[in-house]
Design a protein around this nucleic acid. Structure first.
Length: 250
DNA sequence: TTGATTTGACCCTT
DNA sequence: AAGGGTCAAATCAA
């Protein structure tokens, strides 16, 4: 009879809720690791995360098998030429929250296994942008992805934009430049400034209450800081790029 | 043979 | 409508 929503909508709601639970579990896990909490608690957090991942995997596969998810648009104009698969609704553009940007003078390893899935020429950009997803996207349901783009030639400067957090297993070390996103969804950036061939780690954090504050860079001390809206990441990155461009390398 | 990369096409967001 | 993110077939490499 007339229920509030269709079966497919309910399935998608459950998937959405599970995804949210997984993100929260992952944040708990990161916090526990950062604070050096009891190992058994960390294991429990890990198991909680795995439970969400497995549930999501089973649910999405079952939904796909039964054709329940994302089939709403299938009823009409299904005779489009040269479409091997109906890909409508197959992806959503990433939002700017839960994003980490790293600027570095080289393409250093970040400790994760990535698989390149695309490359695009970007308007007004000299170099193409490469797209990577976590190698464990399918076997562990890890949603982390990154974009890498060279933004400067001499000296070479690369901007790496990380989206999402790793929920896959990796070595416990090597979090030296990917900082955990706090629960308030503020944004943290870190990048290396190539000065005297010595890389300086810079961390930039935007407090959540400064939603409408224009971005600025405080480069006066050893610790650089920057505040900005989570909606103006590009502005901040522009400021960083300006800094690299106009500051003579001493 | 298998997994990774390349590349053109599709389609969502702005 | 344009730009950008993702998919997937083709190709490459180990």
């Amino acid at each position: 009879m007339a229920s509030c929503c269709s079966e497919s909508e309910r399935v998608e709601q459950v998937i959405s809720e599970l995804s949210r639970g997984r993100d929260i579990a992952d944040r708990i896990r990161v916090i526990l690791r950062q604070t050096g909490s009891d190992g058994s608690v960390q294991i429990l957090a890990r198991q909680l995360l795995d439970t969400f991942n497995h549930s999501l995997t089973m649910l999405t596969h079952a939904a796909a098998d039964s054709g329940e998810v994302s089939q709403a648009a299938k009823s009409e104009d299904s005779c489009k030429p040269r479409l091997p698969k109906d890909r409508r609704g197959c992806y959503k553009r990433k939002r700017s929250s839960d994003t980490t940007i790293k600027m570095s003078s080289d393409l250093c390893e970040d400790g994760h296994a990535w698989r390149k899935y695309g490359q695009k020429a970007i308007l007004n950009a000299k170099y193409p942008r490469s797209y990577y997803r976590c190698t464990h996207k399918f076997d562990q349901g890890c949603q982390a992805s990154k974009q890498v783009q060279q933004i400067q030639d001499d000296p070479p400067l690369y901007r790496t934009t990380y989206n999402g957090q790793h929920t896959c297993e990796k070595s416990p070390l090597d979090h030296h430049h990917i900082l955990p996103t706090p629960p308030d969804s503020s944004v943290i950036w870190s990048f290396n400034r190539p000065v005297d061939s010595v890389k300086q780690e810079v961390q930039i954090k935007s407090p959540p209450e400064d939603d409408y504050m224009s971005p600025f860079l405080d480069l006066s001390g050893d610790v650089y800081s920057c505040t900005a809206s989570t909606h103006s990441i590009e502005d901040v990155v522009g400021s960083i790029e300006d800094f690299f461009e106009f500051q003579p390398l001493s």
